[in-house]
Design a protein around this nucleic acid. Structure first.
Lengths: 229, 229
DNA sequence: CGACCATTTGATATGGATCAAGCGATGTGG
DNA sequence: CCACATCGCTTGATCCATATCAAATGGTCG
């Protein structure tokens, strides 16, 4: 069902990074403290950040670039869990192991934070514990919303996606898509052909413009909102 | 798309309950403390426990019976967020308002816990804060899994549902379904007809038995697992 | 320029939705 | 206690949105 487009280019994984350990960060913490506890690590386009079933020893925060998390089913279908843009945290899935894999879609700079340090700190500092709770709750909200997306029609999914991205990756009137059609399809639970067709359809109805395949101008936002049902 | 089967029978909502307030529970807390802070409230079959967009002032834990959470889209489609059986907590969605509604599928007894009390306690007690984090993370895990379900075929969804329910509501070899076909359909993102047809199909292939429509015997669990892909 | 990869476009197939009856269990009123 | 209405479920016939298969186009990089 999926033609394994997912290139696994320079699979270099956890690059034995010199983590600046939590050190003095333990005193005087405040909201936003958590990211102070990590090291800034660069990841190349298409490189793996972590793999499914690996121990979830780290949390991640995007500084620049875009990340996708995903899961590949036995039959090859790939479901993208989410796209993470600068400012977003990811990797805070539940248990001891990651339930998704994560890859850099573009070259990225990512803050990598040792989970044990956060957990230890959270045990002493309520603000940190609450920040973790809030981050998890926020992620829960995001995933809840995705469930609603997956029961909608192709038009509704694509319209919703465009609106979502325009809120998150808008650069002067246009949406700049860092991800491929295959990524979008696997995110929305559609095929690339359906995504492509839906976009051209929206273009023909003057709802959007497609200067290039990765750049989209929303011409009629209310029409999209209406489609979003 | 949905023939609003969702009866709103005795819509009596928050029954001005005399909440046994947190009182002495604030001292000596330990894992599992949270539920000690609530009152046991009965809800009748099909009654609303809370509505979408209502302030999320309470958390809930099922003692007996079954609960569904759901959301109705503008066009009438209904998506069930989850089924909650004895021992399960629900209502811990993110922000200040519930993003789903909750109804009793059967007569229920439910522990109702004031959120503000939990939050206040969590601010002082790390174990409580961590318990909340874990509960939220657990719910996140559950919703993550549901996303994968929604990209699968009808057979896969139904097979997965049966396996899930047999782990959760098995009574001596048979699965006892508290919910209607419409509930199952709205949970899996299918129609009642497709759910029904898939079940008869599984019955014909001797994978399951259907002594009654609400009672299902799994005859060939490995076949279901295989279908579950 | 030519090879390659991403995207679009076209033709056809199909799984599940929709529309429409039928059927069995449950409950109600005569 | 039975006739009948109701409700939840199943089954059948048809339709349609999206997948699948296939090919053309366009953009990028050596």
């Amino acid at each position: 069902m999926l033609t394994q487009t997912t290139s696994r280019a320079g699979s270099f994984k956890q690059p034995t990074m010199a983590l600046r350990q939590a050190g003095p960060a333990s005193k005087d913490p405040h909201p936003g403290t958590i990211e102070m506890m990590g090291a800034l690590v660069p990841f190349a386009r298409n490189s793996e950040i972590y793999g499914e079933n690996e121990p979830a020893d780290y949390l991640y925060k995007v500084v620049s670039g875009t990340v996708r998390t995903y899961k590949v089913l036995v039959d090859g279908r790939r479901q993208i869990g989410g796209f993470y843009l600068p400012g977003d945290m990811f990797g805070l899935e539940t248990g001891d192991e990651h339930t998704f894999s994560a890859e850099a879609i573009t070259d990225c700079k990512i803050i990598v934070i040792k989970r044990s340090a956060v957990v230890a700190l959270a045990a002493r500092d309520n603000d940190v514990a609450r920040e973790m709770w809030e981050l998890t709750a926020h992620e829960l909200q995001r995933v809840q919303d995705r469930i609603l997306v997956l029961i909608k029609s192709a038009q509704e999914r694509v319209a919703g996606f465009l609106l979502e991205m325009s809120d998150r990756a808008s650069v002067g009137g246009a949406v700049e898509l860092p991800m491929s059609r295959q990524d979008i399809a696997d995110y929305l639970g559609l095929t690339i052909e359906t995504v492509s067709r839906t976009l051209t359809q929206l273009e023909k109805s003057a709802t959007i413009e497609l200067p290039t395949s990765r750049r989209i101008v929303l011409r009629n936002r209310s029409a999209l909102t209406r489609l979003n049902a």
